[in-house]
Computed example of a mutant assay.
Amino acid sequence: MTDRPSDPIDTLLSAHGLRRTAAARLVLGWLLAHPDTSYTHAQLQAALAGDAEEALDRVTLYRLIDRLTQVGLLLCRVDAKRVRRYQAMPSSVHAIPHFECQSCHRDSPLDGAFSGALKANANDLERAAQTALEALKALGYQGMSMDFAVRGVCADCASTAPGTASS
């Protein structure tokens, strides 16, 4: 009898060389269930406290987040206030610029409605990014990724903020 992963989270963990522990399933499962939101370590710990039979301690969660990020299952971004935020790795993160709301922390790809305005420039941006990565690789740099983010307050948060006037 073969010990096979029984669900997609177990499959992801195994495919990335990680143990399928209850803590790993809990963290990855939570972040996959909330793909458009990034969480600080403290926010993630608080969110998971209600879902776990036994709360994850701060250090265990930190180490787990670090391992999941190292193998590419989580995306770690540093926001404008230099706070690390984590989310499940979006499939589009390497190719599409994104908008990070500094209020609700939703992360939205800048495609769709923006595609007309960005399409021509996106190809130039992607070529420039690829050229930069190739130049760094030629100099011996390894394990690189590039992220292009626009940060601000999304339209939903801006319209619900106290004292906000609609134009």
Score class of each variant (00 low, 15 high):
residue 66 D to S: 10
residue 123 N to T: 08
residue 156 D to E: 10
residue 142 Q to A: 13
residue 114 F to N: 11
residue 4 R to Q: 08
residue 154 C to I: 07
residue 135 A to N: 13
residue 156 D to R: 10
residue 162 P to I: 00
residue 5 P to H: 04
residue 153 V to E: 10
residue 165 A to Q: 09
residue 161 A to P: 01
residue 112 G to E: 03
residue 142 Q to D: 03
residue 79 D to A: 00
residue 66 D to H: 08
residue 106 R to H: 11
residue 100 E to V: 10
residue 1 M to N: 08
residue 101 C to M: 09
residue 152 G to A: 06
residue 70 Q to L: 08
residue 155 A to M: 02
residue 119 K to W: 07
residue 110 L to V: 03
residue 154 C to K: 02
residue 33 A to H: 04
residue 49 A to S: 04
residue 70 Q to Y: 11
residue 88 A to F: 05
residue 96 I to Q: 01
residue 131 T to K: 07
residue 85 R to G: 05
residue 145 S to E: 09
residue 161 A to W: 05
residue 28 L to C: 00
residue 7 D to V: 10
residue 27 V to M: 03
residue 57 D to C: 07
residue 110 L to K: 00
residue 137 K to T: 15
residue 29 G to W: 09
residue 33 A to I: 03
residue 74 L to V: 04
residue 158 A to C: 01
residue 10 D to Y: 03
residue 10 D to A: 15
residue 41 H to K: 07
residue 134 E to N: 15
residue 113 A to R: 04
residue 24 A to W: 14
residue 15 A to M: 10
residue 94 H to E: 12
residue 79 D to N: 12
residue 90 P to R: 09
residue 99 F to R: 02
residue 29 G to H: 05
residue 19 R to F: 14
residue 58 R to F: 08
residue 50 G to H: 03
residue 39 Y to W: 15
residue 68 L to V: 00
residue 50 G to E: 01
residue 122 A to L: 12
residue 102 Q to F: 11
residue 54 E to G: 06
residue 89 M to V: 06
residue 30 W to Y: 06
residue 99 F to G: 07
residue 48 L to F: 00
residue 157 C to R: 11
residue 52 A to V: 00
residue 87 Q to G: 12
residue 86 Y to G: 02
residue 110 L to I: 12
residue 89 M to L: 04
residue 17 G to L: 04
residue 43 Q to G: 09
residue 91 S to F: 09
residue 119 K to F: 15
residue 130 Q to Y: 13
residue 11 T to L: 15
residue 22 A to F: 13
residue 107 D to P: 00
residue 142 Q to R: 15
residue 162 P to S: 02
residue 69 T to A: 04
residue 66 D to K: 14
residue 24 A to C: 06
residue 93 V to E: 03
residue 40 T to I: 10
residue 104 C to Y: 02
residue 72 G to I: 08
residue 108 S to V: 10
residue 78 V to Q: 12
residue 20 R to K: 14
residue 138 A to N: 06
residue 141 Y to P: 02
residue 86 Y to I: 13
residue 30 W to V: 07
residue 36 D to L: 08
residue 67 R to C: 05
residue 33 A to W: 03
residue 1 M to F: 02
residue 111 D to T: 08
residue 110 L to S: 00
residue 100 E to H: 15
residue 161 A to H: 08
residue 67 R to H: 04
residue 107 D to G: 04
residue 129 A to C: 06
residue 136 L to S: 03
residue 110 L to N: 01
residue 102 Q to N: 12
residue 8 P to G: 09
residue 72 G to K: 07
residue 77 R to E: 11
residue 2 T to S: 13
residue 3 D to T: 15
residue 17 G to Q: 06
residue 74 L to E: 01
residue 33 A to S: 13
residue 70 Q to D: 06
residue 43 Q to N: 11
residue 97 P to G: 08
residue 31 L to A: 00
residue 125 L to K: 03
residue 21 T to A: 05
residue 71 V to K: 10
residue 81 K to G: 12
residue 125 L to R: 13
residue 91 S to W: 04
residue 44 L to E: 00
residue 148 F to A: 12
residue 26 L to I: 02
residue 101 C to P: 02
residue 85 R to F: 09
residue 64 L to S: 08
residue 132 A to G: 09
residue 121 N to M: 11
residue 48 L to V: 01
